[in-house]
Amino acid sequence: MMVDEQIDDTSKTPGTEPNRLYFVFRDGHEAYAVPPTSVVEVITKTKATPVPFTPDWLDGVISVRGAIVPVLDLFRYFRLPSKISTRRNRMILVGVGPNAFAIWSDQIVGVETVEESRMEPPLSNLTDSLLKCLSGQFRTEGIMVYCIDLQKLLEETRGQVKAL
């Protein structure tokens, strides 16, 4: 199932803008949004087994119900300037097609409905790696939420791992 963006049913009513559903979570200072349909499940933090000859943003692999899932550290991958959050207690298991990977989070905000008008164009002052995987952004309660294109992220990460 390849669903990038799921249109909320309520947005189908005529005369109104189409609304989008996002699964919003936080990691440190940053807040990210992914489509709820790509989220397999949320699990408690699990010790990752390191994999040799991998980039530093790949923490290792975990086993979820018999499946081996790599753990991606977005913070390291996007090369953010602040420190890694110490309150990380959740892992979000996302699935892109047959591929699945886990992302660190220290707070799950929940599923949020975002009107199209709230979407902002990508900022030009972001890092290359973040900009490449970004489908847009919006603000909620004054915090900038980056909408991540999981397909692009997967391709980019795969490309980088292969380049090693």
Partner: peptide, 20 residues
């Protein structure tokens, strides 16, 4: 409570996926 929260969250996710 943590487990309940996680359970509720996943349930909510499933509910979202289920749509209407």
């Amino acid at each position: 409570a943590d487990r309940s929260d996680l359970l509720a969250l996943n349930a909510a996710l499933e509910g979202t996926k289920a749509g209407q």
